[in-house]
Write a protein that binds this DNA or RNA. Sequence first.
DNA 1: AATTTTATCTGACTAAAGTCAGAGAATGTT
DNA 2: AACATTCTCTGACTTTAGTCAGATAAAATT
Lengths: 292, 292
Amino acid sequence: MFSQIDQVRRFNRVVSQRAGTLDQSYLGQGRPLGEARLLFEIGHDGGNARELRDRLGLDSGYLSRLLRALESQGMIVVTPSETDRRVRDIQLTDAGRAQVETYDRLSDDLASSILAPLDERQKAKLVEAMAQVERLYRAAAVTVSAESPATVDARACVDQYIRELNQRFDTGYDPDTAGPLDDSEFLPPDGVFVVARLDGKAIGCGGLKRLDAETGEIKRLWVSPDTRGLGLGRRLLVELEALAQQRGMARVCLDTNGTLVEAQALYHAQGYVEVAPYNDNPYAQHWFEKRL
Amino acid sequence: MFSQIDQVRRFNRVVSQRAGTLDQSYLGQGRPLGEARLLFEIGHDGGNARELRDRLGLDSGYLSRLLRALESQGMIVVTPSETDRRVRDIQLTDAGRAQVETYDRLSDDLASSILAPLDERQKAKLVEAMAQVERLYRAAAVTVSAESPATVDARACVDQYIRELNQRFDTGYDPDTAGPLDDSEFLPPDGVFVVARLDGKAIGCGGLKRLDAETGEIKRLWVSPDTRGLGLGRRLLVELEALAQQRGMARVCLDTNGTLVEAQALYHAQGYVEVAPYNDNPYAQHWFEKRL
DNA sequence: AATTTTATCTGACTAAAGTCAGAGAATGTT
DNA sequence: AACATTCTCTGACTTTAGTCAGATAAAATT
């Protein structure tokens, strides 16, 4: 444990030293770093002034001045948005696009300069390790928080969950057949609903409802397809088990369809054991429980 | 190739975002970032003003003012050095040490916060990948440059090389027996000597001398023990082969002792083939050559 | 002993980065 | 229609970071 933290610190030190040289190379392009970063950001993820302010965490007065500077350099065109004329839409000019390309080339050059001194085997190893670090950083950046199943994000997750079941089940999936879609069962004090987010975007969910005094049921456990493999399903499951324990439940159970093989593997790995049917969900073919 | 650079860029972006939060957390300690970084550096690798100036690349006037600020805050004590009263020795006070510990705790907290959301397997994987990245970053940061075999660094490398041979050979090693230690054979235009450096420190070397019109001999190939495994031996060898080719040599040869098994493995891997003895070096038991 | 070099310090700057308090216009809410 | 909120802009600031040209003293070199 101790040496793990040490390794992370050594890593941070070595890596941020290199990353700093990128910032440095953005200078000497006749533009202060703040402007360069803003321009780079506009060039890549675009957006209007408000979004940029949020993303980069800038003071509105400061941003305004930076935009004015880029505008007077002919890098961008700022116009009031069609839909809300308080907000400013920002467009790159041709010159702006050219400048962003220059910055891209600098980023590429930095990347190349890291790889260049290495032989092919080392390059491949480094890139693989980087991909691993990036993947796990993303996994670590996921937050899981309890909230009402009625929030926009929670509903969006459940919608995607239902759509996916409908695709995967041989019989299709009609949520009404499985039992009434009743949000209130996931509300405190008896139930709870959790949503996982990455960079503010909802990417997974799970619900816990009470079946009886000592039993909770886990439902709607879902992880968005593009974030699978990050161990998020396990994290949501563990979170929900902890919440069940907090509510005095001695065991949790859940049902699942035969086509969801990854889910069943997860349940087994987390110590769930198959039990006799405890409900008559027509889509369920396996029933599990775990003592807490 | 394309996607490798892409991966490096994605990595840089994700990682430097996180590393940036460390700098941020150093603020809010009632001290500007420049001062905080200097204090952190003093606390860890210490040194006098000149060393710090070199390491952090600061202007001498700027550093002087930073030191004065830290001094007036009671974090450090600055005194003229005993050995050279122009240079300033810097000592942390108790308060300074306490502050450095606070910064350490912040670094630890950041490291923990990255690991915390992951399960044990993921933690282990991340730390391993980080170690890999760090190792290869170090390998990539090594520079190899041609210089006179008479420079301080070149001599230091050759000294260590000789000392190591003396330890490893059953018979010991006396450089005079192997032939006169003549630096001039490694001097242009016929010869060349290269030194490898990491963070300014010499960590390896190699020499090329001309045997005849079309033959070069590689000698004094050495890598410091603590940087072995970074592929540095191969890099020096490749570098010397390229320099031989530039000098119109059609082949290079070298001799080696039986105890240096890693070296022989390297020569084989790089396409060298064993040949009959081409000299009467008493320490040599194997002779290799490679056509360029 | 005279000269040069090295390490630090001081004064006088500049540019960049960021903060804060309003003001004005558009949009939402009651 | 009145009021509150949101988004942006402007003016007036401050702090931080960094540069540059000497000045001074100690050490190294000639």
